[in-house]
């Protein structure tokens, strides 16, 4: 999956995550949201709202149960975005 949509989502999420964590930690697709970035559940839920607005899609928060890494989050957003187009 290297289409431009996917890259755009990855870019947006990495940017938002790095500002949310206020750290200089390098964020890669394999970075774990909770153990490495200390993103708590409320921050993650609020981030999802922003992503919904950025791409005009609905992301059910129950789908986050399967998300641990940045890549898994991007995959989820990408899948929903593809279906909604």
């Amino acid at each position: 999956m290297t289409d431009s949509n996917y890259d755009e989502i990855m870019q947006l999420l990495c940017d938002r995550l790095s500002s949310l964590t206020n750290s200089n930690a390098q964020i890669s697709p394999e970075t774990n949201l909770i153990s490495q970035l200390s993103i708590d559940s409320i921050k993650l839920l609020n981030l999802i709202m922003e992503v919904e607005d950025a791409f005009d899609i609905s992301i059910p928060i129950n789908a986050l149960a399967d998300v641990q890494t940045v890549r898994e989050l991007v995959d989820l957003v990408h899948k929903i975005k593809s279906v909604s187009q």
């Binding site: 839920l45 999802i48 709202m49 919904e52 607005d53 005009d56 899609i57 609905s58 992301i59 059910p60 928060i61 129950n62």
Partner: peptide, 26 residues
Amino acid sequence: CILSGADIIRFKHNDVADMEKRLRRL
């Protein structure tokens, strides 16, 4: 909501414009 298995979407606290945006998207 989690127990129900339905898709859960949140709107910003007490923000009706935000709520409408999310309703429209559905």
